[in-house]
Amino acid sequence: MFKIGLDLGYGYVKGVNEAGKTVVFPSLIGNAYERNLKILFENGFERKIDNMHLIIMNGQKQEYFVGELARRESRNVSYAFDEDKINHPNTKALIAASCLLLFPEDGRPVHLVTGLPLEQYIHKKEEFKEMLKDYKTIACFKGDERVKGIKFDKITIFPQAAGAVYFAVMEDLHRYLVKGSYLGLVDIGFKTTDFIVFLVEDRLVLREDLSGTIDLGISAVYNAADKLFTQKTGSKLDVPELMRLTADGKIFFKGKQLNFTEELKNIKAETARVIKDRLKAVWGNKLDFFNTVFLAGGGSKDLQEFLNDIYENTVIVKDPQLANARGFLKVAELEEKKTNTKEG
């Protein structure tokens, strides 16, 4: 089976397949329209992932701008912020777009490993699995009319932060798998921050009492940036400009450059402080027995300088935004080995 690890985040979709192809794009969906002038400005090197005009053909044809294209050109673009993300129509469109990029060309059956935030995993794992089992769609990108049927032959749902732990420890097993020690990972996403702890025995043993989800992520920085801008200008920002302001710390408005770097730094420090306080309250004196605290997720790069003092050995994982997706792929590989051993 062809293996794919897919992390459907509130802020970004991240995916990796067994052939080594990776995709990262904003979890944005917008209304599609004909871009008649596109041909004047297009060059042959435009990346497909930056120009995803998705066409879904399930009886009724639906068209969306997805990811970067939605951010740049949609008139009313949105993140899927519902608690019930599983049944949100945006989620199904994001799955279709990512799978068009990650599916094998030869039509082999696909094993998909994906995840949910820890607390949603406990309550909604089966519902998510059922949705993916029933997921069948025919789709293509406009301008690349190779239609693909998308369905999954095997589905594994895994807790989000746990995927990142698998990826992190595989880098150096001897260093991290010290018997009797604990490993913690903090996965800072767009809407939520997951934290997970494993006790190292002959295998990794999940400590559920030391793991959980904090309802706070990088979107808190976005919301605060939006308020700052409104206080300073009296105007509101839409999603594309808000993303620019949060990334750059400054924005061009009404003939001048407005600089919010210092204010945004303070907001990030405060967001990190709330996360640290919650972690320390849950972990308590167990923290003294930790080997390493890993930082993962797209938000870890934004908050790293304010989180390094969680513990003396705090490490940001390699390529933190893709850590869950790569961990999910590792889970698929381990499952395949188990199956082959049983059959052998």
Rank of each mutant, 00 (worst) to 15 (best):
T314P: 02
L307Y: 07
N285V: 03
K38S: 15
F65A: 11
V200P: 00
V13P: 06
A80Q: 06
N76L: 13
L237Y: 13
K227E: 13
I56H: 01
Y135Q: 01
G212V: 09
A80W: 05
M52N: 07
D288K: 02
I251M: 04
G180H: 00
G67A: 11
K148M: 13
A224E: 14
E127Y: 04
K125W: 05
Q257L: 15
D194K: 09
E83R: 14
K3L: 15
G284F: 07
K337L: 07
K265H: 10
F190Q: 06
G212P: 09
A164I: 03
F290H: 02
G15P: 15
G149Q: 09
F306C: 03
R207Q: 10
E105Q: 13
L37D: 15
L6N: 05
A272Q: 05
V186I: 09
G59L: 01
D153P: 04
V169T: 14
R244W: 05
H53W: 07
C140F: 13
E270Q: 12
G297Q: 02
L116E: 03
Y182F: 13
V147L: 13
I4G: 08
L28F: 05
A220V: 07
D144F: 12
L264G: 03
V147E: 09
Y135E: 01
F306Y: 14
L100H: 05
M170C: 07
I122N: 04
S98V: 03
G255N: 13
Q231L: 12
E208F: 00
V16P: 07
E126V: 14
V221M: 03
D277H: 12
F25Y: 15
M131F: 13
I39P: 03
E83D: 09
E119C: 02
E262F: 11
E42F: 06
S74D: 11
T341D: 10
R203G: 06
F253T: 15
L118P: 00
K3P: 07
H111R: 03
G255A: 14
E333H: 05
P26V: 11
T261G: 10
G149D: 02
L322N: 12
E34V: 15
K142M: 04
F260D: 11
N51W: 06
A323W: 04
P26H: 12
D187H: 05
T192C: 03
V165D: 00
V186G: 04
Q160N: 08
